[in-house]
């Protein structure tokens, strides 16, 4: 089935390589997707106005519904935001009618047919670990990876239904496909700090640092994330921190995809470092 690829607002300028690497991986795994012109998921106004946030998400669903598609996004905040909006719109019919009235001005309608899914879910559930490992040509050996889950995909579990909120496994299972090992670390399921970057920059920095030192303590070689916001937060902390990489980059390199499409030059992990684990 064809999916509607939703890059989210932070990819085109701030995390370009996440977009290119995700699309490169999806293409070589044979996942069909199109790229309609979506709008922001609504995350940017969720703090300020419930209806504006719902309108944004609902409009995206309406666009996907027109093509009879589900939405796939590599950003956990976009995923969580839209999943939450869908939950609210399906529970609260008054709000839904109100939002639909606003959408009617441009002949759109939210019916709730299309779902939003995170990249990891599509990889784990639609493609499947077996199929992915068939594409892995250059396994990593002895590389220890700290999988960073990302809050908005995981919680509230009753709304997003991504994985077990207390002991999720989906990300580790996808990382292991590449041959890498996963470490258990204390702050695995905690916040990266990015949502507070504007309102409480100091707290935001502290959250990120605690997270990173927790990963370091666990002996991980790198942190792997699958969220634009989390990645941007990790990329913003000083060089002394642990290297971080996006999952499609990690997977793509082991699938033998070109470094150019993976954008490895734009992350803190050097390609040489990764290649060392492959050569070993």
């Amino acid at each position: 089935m064809t999916l509607a690829f939703f890059p989210g607002c932070k990819i085109p300028y701030f995390c370009f390589h996440y977009g290119t690497s995700t699309k490169a991986v999806l293409k070589s795994l044979g996942v069909d997707f199109v790229e309609p012109e979506f709008n922001c998921c609504g995350y940017s106004v969720r703090n300020f106005d419930l209806k504006a946030f719902l309108l944004q998400s609902a409009r995206n669903f309406a666009i996907a519904e027109q093509g009879g598609m589900d939405i796939v996004t590599p950003c956990k905040c976009c995923f969580g935001t839209m999943a939450h909006a869908r939950h609210i719109l399906d529970e609260n019919h008054g709000l839904r009618a109100e939002i639909n009235q606003m959408l009617a001005a441009e002949n759109r309608k939210y019916t709730g047919v299309s779902r939003v899914r995170h990249l990891l879910s599509v990889l784990a559930e639609d493609v499947g670990a077996a199929q992915i490992s068939a594409h892995v040509r250059r396994s990593y050996h002895g590389m220890k990876v700290a999988a960073h889950y990302g809050c908005h995909a995981l919680r509230p579990s009753s709304v997003v239904q991504f994985d077990n909120p207390f002991s999720p496994t989906i990300f580790e299972s996808l990382i292991r496909v590449t041959g890498a090992e996963c470490v258990d670390w204390e702050k695995r399921l905690e916040c990266c700090g990015q949502p507070l970057a504007e309102s409480s920059p100091e707290l935001s920095r502290r959250l990120a640092e605690r997270k990173i030192s927790s990963a370091l303590d666990s002996g991980a070689d790198l942190i792997c994330s699958a969220c634009t916001y989390c990645q941007n937060k990790f990329a913003a902390v000083p060089e002394t921190a642990i290297p971080n990489i996006l999952y499609p980059q990690l997977l793509g390199l082991s699938m033998g995809l070109s470094g150019r499409s993976l954008g490895l030059e734009r992350t803190s992990v050097t390609r040489e470092k990764l290649e060392r684990f492959i050569a070993a």
Binding site: R46, N47, C151, H152, R155, P156, S200, L203
Partner: peptide, 23 residues
């Protein structure tokens, strides 16, 4: 200062939607 990580809400034994209330 809420990071909207939903840990509180997920853990609440009474099902109080704390993070949503903060929103």
């Amino acid at each position: 200062s809420c990071a909207t990580c939903y840990l509180c809400q997920e853990h609440c034994p009474q099902g109080v939607r704390i993070t949503d209330i903060f929103y």
